[in-house]
Amino acid sequence: MNNEKLEKIIDSSRTDQKELIHILHDVQSEYGYIPPEAVTAISRRLKVSESEIFGVLTFYNAFSLTPKGEHVMTVCMGTACHVRGGPQIVEDIERKLDVKVGETTADNKFTLETVNCIGCCAIGPVVVVDEKYYSNITLNKIDPIINEYKEDKS
């Protein structure tokens, strides 16, 4: 873990508890998860106990305690996506990647997640990979999406 980066995130201007969620967002986007060392450092800076920080970070879906895969594949579970077949899509991706929702593939390529609604209800079911949106997903559109990222060597 790069301490310099962490120091930069928890800089001296951020000393109030109201900064906690912002700091966690920054740590999450820098490291892809919240490392235990970061919790200790944030606790010292904000004078908020580690257990409370742990309580906050596990309360919100945006933060995770384990590193994520290279690509995060998110399937929308909103109502509109649900009535148009969203559940089938998740099950199929689970089968194809051989993971359950929340898990990361053995080769560390993908983490599969669901989201309650991303607000693209008119074009559901929707799958988002990293920041790219795929609309009107049907079962036969899943393989091409997975392959797009499998072949990607970056």
């Binding site: 508890q17 109201k18 969620i21 967002h25 409370e52 989201v115």
Partner: peptide, 25 residues
């Protein structure tokens, strides 16, 4: 601008304020 962190209940007004204060919603 405060970016939410993914908890449905924080849309409830008192929860939302707790979240702005840096606490669980």
């Amino acid at each position: 601008v405060i970016e939410g962190a993914g908890a449905f209940v924080s849309g409830e007004e008192t929860s939302l304020m707790a979240s702005i204060e840096g606490r669980r919603a």
